[in-house]
């Protein structure tokens, strides 16, 4: 069974088609780099995959189930543009909140473990509003991995992260990958994404212009994909 199936998905904003007939099947264990210029539709597609938005037409299935089902959402980890953390709560309280919402059997222990892994155990009771940018980013990464998702949806994951947070994210993605989990990430940072990716999907003006395995040509020349399949 595919980890992710996108069946002829269209998304309209008013009369404007932000996504046009997107069809994708992603096998479990794949890491897909979702590429495309600004406004191509990457974030729109990721939001639909995450169940944050409904497609105007078409269907999205995660392991054969509807993306909005409670049991499906339990499997998905989403890291969007924002850190999705509450400034007025402490690091520990933020993780506990999401641990409880995801029904973890021992959210306190898992929160302690994730704080330790992201190097935030010493500031576990500090309020997020007092954190530096890098600390907030690492805590956001901890939140996403808190419930051990087997489908990760990352929207521009490296853009706002500092080096340490990128290191933590790389390690955690590698672990998910090792366990047979699936990662879909949209990015502009081609080099970083292509090194991690097993597959590449290029979106142009809401349409899928290319989808396939990542190859050596892409790694050696990051502009090759855009030149070959993209708009001139």
């Amino acid at each position: 069974m595919n980890a992710l199936e996108v069946e002829s998905v269209w998304k309209y904003y008013g009369d404007f088609p932000a996504l046009r007939d997107i069809k994708l099947n992603v096998e479990a264990g794949s890491t897909v780099a979702l590429l495309g210029r600004n406004g191509a539709g990457k974030t729109t597609l990721l939001r639909i995959l995450a169940g944050l938005s409904k497609p105007s037409k078409g269907k999205v299935r995660v392991k054969g189930a509807d993306a909005r089902l409670e049991s499906t959402r339990r499997r998905i980890g989403v890291l969007g543009h924002g850190i999705s953390l509450y400034d007025e709560l402490s690091a520990n309280e933020n993780l506990l909140l999401f641990g409880r919402l995801y029904g973890l059997p021992d959210p306190a222990r898992r929160a302690a473990e994730m704080l330790d892994r992201t190097g935030l155990d010493r500031v576990r009771d500090g309020l997020v509003r007092e954190f530096s940018r890098g600390m907030r980013q690492r805590l956001a990464v901890a939140r996403v991995f808190m419930h051990d998702p087997d489908l990760l949806l990352l929207d521009e994951p490296f853009t706002a992260l500092d080096d340490r947070a990128i290191g933590v994210l790389h390690t955690l993605i590698a672990e998910i990958h090792q366990k047979g989990g699936t990662v879909v990430m949209s990015t502009h940072q081609l080099r970083e994404a292509l090194e991690l990716a097993t597959h590449v999907a290029l979106i142009q003006r809401g349409q899928l212009a290319f989808a396939g395995e990542r190859n050596q040509e892409m790694l050696q020349d990051t502009g090759w994909l855009y030149r070959t399949y993209g708009e001139s």
């Binding site: 595919n2 002829s8 046009r20 007939d21 997107i22 069809k23 994708l24 099947n25 992603v26 096998e27 264990g29 794949s30 890491t31 897909v32 097993t198 597959h199 999907a201 349409q207 899928l208 212009a209 290319f210 989808a211 396939g212 395995e213």
Partner: peptide
Amino acid sequence: GAGFSLQGGLQ
């Protein structure tokens, strides 16, 4: 256009 597939991905 549309209709590409990532079938046959990483085992």
